[in-house]
C-alpha cells in the first residue's frame, strides 16, 4: 500500500524543527510500524538523505524504548499496544500518517523523534527502590503476601516507563508512571520500610522536573500500552496524605 507520512524532523535540541512529508510506496500490511520506519529510512539512505532518528530496542513490547505520537495518539491507534507491536494493518492505502515526538517540558527533544526521558530515571532515583542487601533469593514462602496484593503489585509493575502517559496527558503529568512505581512497592511488605519517605521524595522530584498536575481526565489509562489504571494514582494520593499527616516536619 501507499501512505503519506508527515514526520517531525529536527537536527538537534537547539535547531528549529518542522514537519517533512514523505510519500512511501510499497508498504506491506504485515510490516510493524517500526519496520515501516526502517523501510522509509532505507529509501532515504539510498537517496543520500539523513534517516529519521527514532528509539527502539526489544521490538516486542517489553523494554519501553519505542515511543512516537501517531495521528494524535501515543503509540498509535491500537489499544494497549506499543509502537513496536503496532501493525500496518491498522492503516489503509492512501492514509496520511502524522508522526510526532513526545511533547513535554520534562522530556527535552534530542533529535527528530527521540526525546530525553531521563526525567523518569531521576524520579526513580528519588525513591523508586528498596534498600536491602541483595543476596541469594529468599525462600518464597518466608514472607506471606496476600494473593490479591501480589496480583495488584504485578499489574502496576508491568509499567515499562515508555512515557506514553506523559505524552498523552493534556497537562504532561507523570502521575500514572509515578503512581505505578509507588503502588508496586507500597503493596508489598518489602516496600513498607521506606514507604513514607518514598512517596514524598518521588512526588517532590516529579514536581521539580516540570511535569504538569493531574486533572483526573483518565487519558493516561486510556492510552497506556500496559493498561495501568488510574486507581494507582488514587493509591499514591492516599499514600501521600498518610505520609504527610505522619511526617515529623510540616512540609506540604
Amino acid at each position: 500500500m501507499n501512505i503519506k507520512l508527515e514526520i517531525w524532523r529536527q537536527k538537534d535540541a537547539k535547531s528549529k524543527g518542522g514537519f517533512v512529508t514523505y510519500p512511501l510506496d510499497g508498504v506491506s500490511e504485515g510490516m510493524s510500524f517500526l519496520e515501516m520506519m526502517d523501510f522509509l529510512n532505507t529509501t532515504l539512505i539510498k537517496k543520500g538523505d539523513e534517516p529519521v532518528a527514532f528509539e527502539h530496542d526489544c521490538r516486542e513490547g517489553i523494554c519501553g524504548s519505542c515511543s512516537l505520537y501517531i495521528n494524535g495518539r501515543a503509540h498509535g491507534p491500537a489499544h494497549e499496544t506499543t509502537t513496536c507491536e503496532l501493525r500496518m494493518t491498522k492503516f489503509r492505502n492512501g492514509d496520511r500518517i502524522v508522526v510526532e515526538p513526545w511533547r513535554s517540558k520534562a522530556f527535552p527533544l534530542i533529535k527528530d523523534l527521540i526525546v530525553d526521558r531521563s526525567s523518569f530515571e531521576k524520579i526513580m532515583q528519588a525513591g523508586g527502590f528498596i534498600s536491602v542487601n541483595t543476596g541469594a533469593a529468599p525462600e518464597a514462602n518466608s514472607i506471606p503476601i496476600p494473593k490479591n496484593h501480589a496480583d495488584e503489585a504485578f499489574d502496576s509493575a508491568v509499567c515499562v516507563g515508555c512515557g506514553a502517559c506523559v505524552a498523552t496527558c493534556k497537562n504532561s503529568s507523570a502521575m500514572l508512571f509515578v503512581s505505578a512505581k509507588i503502588s508496586q512497592l507500597a503493596l508489598l511488605p518489602q516496600g513498607q520500610v521506606e514507604a513514607k519517605t518514598r512517596v514524598q521524595n518521588m512526588v517532590t522530584k516529579m514536581d521539580d522536573l516540570g511535569f504538569g498536575n493531574c486533572t483526573n481526565t483518565g487519558a493516561c489509562e486510556a492510552e497506556c500500552p500496559k493498561g495501568i489504571k488510574i486507581a494507582n494514582i488514587a493509591r499514591m494520593n492516599r499514600e501521600f496524605i498518610c505520609a504527610k499527616m505522619g511526617a515529623q516536619k510540616m512540609s506540604l
Binding site: G72, E100, A106, K170, N171, G210
Partner: peptide
C-alpha cells in the same frame, strides 16, 4: 508543562 504543542 507542554511548551511545544502537538500538530495533531
Amino acid at each position: 508543562a507542554r511548551p511545544v504543542r502537538y500538530k495533531m
